[in-house]
């Protein structure tokens, strides 16, 4: 049990958290983020209450919630690569990695500590913004379960993009290249999968639509493309109508199930590669010998 806990609570994590949160910059970042989010919420309510014909209704409240949820997802998608892609390569560039690798810390604990400490700041931002959701509750239209689902969704997205960032940071020597690569993958997940979805859906519709106008057979490509897209999946949770287009391609599995499965696999794979490759040569050599 102690050994398991030491993977999560260890000197590397302590150090990272201490160094990251020690600066005044961190406090300022959080302050301005909450300020902007608060102003955005209040502005939304003001516009809907005073500038439209009806008062602020439960539907408006639901819309505000969706704006907040998708806005924070955008924040996660844009900040996580920057926070994680330098985690290992940055140590390498600072010439502190070699020393760290000669300590008793296992590769697993170093990688997990790096991941958790990198996303800790973002996590703090999310937690700190939770009270903003209470504004939404004032007007109704959203259940507490939905808030929890959104929060868990943000967390998984953060973990997955973060793990990808850590993996590229481990595999690529230069932080700049690792960061660009992680952003590239993130853009593919947000934009590329959407394009792929429309192309594949059009292809399926054209090729497999029978005379009755019903698509024949199960075609997974549009589903796979869309399940990798965090924005589309989050939107599908808010607006289940999105999934109808997928059902027309013959897939009835909820999009969020595919999202959770695929993102969990990506996270585990990325972390596994990072752990194996952190101390690459020695590990590979001993494996070869065992084989």
């Amino acid at each position: 049990m102690d050994r398991f806990m030491s993977l999560f609570i260890n000197p590397v994590l302590n150090k990272e958290v201490k160094l990251r949160f020690r600066t005044f910059k961190s406090f300022l970042g959080l302050f301005f983020y909450l300020l902007v989010c608060g102003i955005a919420c209040l502005a939304f309510i003001y516009i809907e209450s005073y500038l439209s014909y009806d008062s602020f209704t439960a539907t408006d409240s639901r819309n505000l919630f969706m704006v907040l949820g998708i806005g924070q997802l955008g924040l996660i998608l844009f900040m996580t690569p920057g926070l994680t892609a330098g985690a290992i390569s940055g140590e390498r560039e600072m010439q502190t990695l070699n020393i760290l690798l000669t300590t008793q810390q296992s590769s697993t604990s170093i990688i997990l500590s790096k991941l958790f400490s990198s996303i800790a700041y973002l996590f703090l931002m999310l937690i700190a913004s939770l009270p903003l959701y209470s504004i939404v509750f004032l007007y109704g239209g959203v259940s507490p379960e939905m808030v929890m689902i959104t929060f868990s969704f943000h967390l998984l997205t953060m973990l997955t993009i973060g793990s990808l960032g850590i993996m590229f940071s481990t595999l690529i020597r230069r932080t700049m290249v690792a960061t660009i690569t992680t952003y590239g993958v993130m853009v593919f997940l947000v934009v590329g999968t959407l394009i792929l979805f429309f192309i594949s859906l059009r292809f399926v519709m054209q090729q497999y639509t029978g005379p009755s106008g019903v698509t024949q057979g199960n075609h997974y490509l549009p589903y796979v493309a869309l399940m990798l897209n965090p924005a589309a999946t989050l939107f599908s949770i808010y607006e289940p109508t999105v999934e109808r287009s997928l059902q027309s391609a013959g897939v009835n599995w909820d999009l969020w199930k595919g999202f959770i499965t695929s993102y969990s696999i990506i996270t585990i794979f990325s972390l596994f590669v990072s752990i194996i490759r952190l101390r690459p040569s020695t590990q590979l050599k001993s494996r070869k010998k065992k084989g």
């Binding site: 150090k15 160094l19 020690r22 010439q95 502190t96 020393i99």
Partner: peptide, 14 residues
């Protein structure tokens, strides 16, 4: 072992 590499960095904020 205690290892001191030829080039090394330190965590400046410590």
């Amino acid at each position: 072992i205690g290892y001191m590499p030829d080039f090394f960095g330190v965590y400046d904020q410590f």
